[in-house]
Nucleic acid binder design. Structure first.
Lengths: 103, 103
DNA sequence: ATCTAATATCGATATGTCCCGATATGTCAA
DNA sequence: TTGACATATCGGGACATATCGATATTAGAT
C-alpha cells in the first residue's frame, strides 16, 4: 500500500464527474447492475459502463479514471478486454483521517 | 453558517501553501507567537505574518487567504488596519464528515 | 489633510486542467 | 492473421489557476 499525496488527492476530488464516479462506486451493483461479464462487487466496474452514464467521451472517462487511480483512490484490474475499477477504501480512510488529524 | 461546496473546498485544498496555512492556523500561538496587537487565538492571524513566513508576494498570500475564505475554510475579521484570519472549525468538521459519509 | 502601513485588487504571463477527436495498443474470436 | 471491440494515449483549443509587479483602498497617526 503506497503513501498518500494530499495534493494529488484533492486535485482528483476537485471535479464533479470524478466525485460522481467515486460515489457511484460505493454501490456498483445499484448503479451498474447490468454488468454481466463479471461481478462488479468484486472486480469493479468497466470503463464503458461509466461512459454510458456520463455525457463525456470515452477518452475523457478513461483519463478521469486514470487520475483517480494515480491518486490512489481507485484500483484497476484488467480482465480480458476490460479494465475494472473499484474504490480503494483503504486510501479513502486515510484521506478521512488526514482531514481529521492533520488538517 | 453557509452550506459547503465540495468542489471549491477541494480546489482550495489542492495547493501546498494553502494546506500549510490551514495547518499553521491549528496552533497560531505556536507559529505566530510574535503577534502582539491582538490575541491570535481569538481573532486569528494577520496577512503580513503569513507573508513573512512564505516566500510569496503579499498579493499572492492575500489571494490565497481569499480562496480559503470563499471556500468557507477560514473566516476573516478586520480590526483597524489588519485583517485576521482563523480556521472555520465548523466547516472543517463538515468536510471530514463529507469524506466519511458521502464519499 | 497628509503620510504611511496593511490589505485588496488589477493586469499580465506561464502553467495546468477540461474535454475533445484521432490514433495507438491490447485482447479475444473467426 | 484479420477483424472487432475495450481501453489508453496523443495533440490541441478553451478556459482556469499560480504568481508576480503595480496600483488602489482602507485606516490609523501626525
Amino acid at each position: 500500500m503506497e503513501h498518500m499525496n494530499p495534493i494529488d488527492i484533492f486535485k482528483a476530488l476537485s471535479n464533479e464527474t470524478r466525485l460522481q464516479i467515486l460515489i457511484w462506486l460505493k454501490e456498483p451493483e445499484v448503479h451498474f447492475g447490468t454488468q454481466t461479464s463479471a461481478d462488479c462487487k468484486d472486480v469493479g466496474v468497466c470503463v464503458s459502463l461509466f461512459h454510458q452514464r456520463l455525457q463525456l467521451t470515452q477518452s475523457t472517462v478513461s483519463e478521469y479514471l486514470a487520475i483517480l487511480q494515480r491518486a490512489g483512490l481507485v484500483t484497476a484490474t484488467r480482465i480480458g478486454k476490460w479494465t475494472y475499477y473499484k474504490r480503494n477504501e483503504d486510501m479513502l480512510r486515510k484521506v478521512a483521517h488526514y482531514l481529521e488529524d492533520e488538517l
